[in-house]
Design a protein around this nucleic acid. Structure first.
Lengths: 129, 129
DNA sequence: TCTCTATATTGACAGTCTTCGATTCAGCAC
DNA sequence: GTGCTGAATCGAAGACTGTCAATATAGAGA
């Protein structure tokens, strides 16, 4: 995982707004954002993240959508592969919960450092002459 | 735009981690994340956002990729439709810049409130029986 | 005017994604 | 063991996406 690192370098978020991403970073990040790029998955994620107790049974998620059970299962799998949620089987049921490290990382990547408040747009940057 | 609102309600970020999204919110948000869900667009965005001066000429972006000019133009259009960047024609050239309000909004949506540090996973939440 | 350069748009094709019904797998209860 | 229930996987159909070559458009300059 090449995304954001909050510890080892000391820098909170190398990314996106401060320096051009290289191809590998962009590929990794794109996978996660792609997982977020679907309304059903966003709703699933928000239902999981906001649930009191921190986890949700699939049996509570599926009936909230006008979609088949395999479709919901598929979306949950994609969210899990993106590292946004994790799950555990407990008896007959399966419970999902948010992986907050990943959303924290994304938030950091999208946050511009306060000290260097994004290059203000200034002038044509000397283009046309 | 239904996304994040930083002013009118007083709340900084209704979203995603604190309460289930409704269908409309999820649809709007998904469009933006979908725009971020492609490595080429992420690299374009980071090149635009990190550029000193705050804006970039398309003529500086296109040669950085092994892609045709129409393809880059297409990706820029999608980023613009998502509200992440904006542009202006200036003579023969077109300049793009970041719309920081949108990335701020996304960062807020992905940030959990410090006071209510995400429901700690506790127990099965009384599911079975 | 005509020509040249920089971007955008169009149309087409290949690949990917979302969705479903059917099936399979895991665990509980009898 | 058999049967039942909850969830995941498989395979296929249709929609959508990323890419290109070709073309169109906007502006500068002769």
């Amino acid at each position: 995982m090449v995304l954001g690192r909050t510890d080892d370098t000391g820098a909170c978020c190398p990314g996106l707004l401060t320096a051009p991403l290289d191809e590998e970073q962009a590929g990794e990040l794109a996978k996660v954002f792609k997982a977020l790029g679907d309304p059903v998955r966003l709703r699933l994620l928000s239902m999981i993240a906001s649930r009191a107790g921190g986890e949700v049974c699939v049996c509570d998620l599926t009936p909230a959508f006008d979609l088949s059970q395999p479709t919901i299962s598929h979306h949950l799998k994609l969210l899990r592969q993106a590292g946004l949620i994790d799950c555990e089987r407990r008896g007959t049921w399966v419970y999902y919960w948010l992986v907050p490290e990943m959303t924290d990382r994304l938030a950091g990547i999208l946050t511009r450092p306060a000290g260097e408040p994004l290059p203000e747009r200034t002038a044509p940057a000397g283009a046309a002459s």
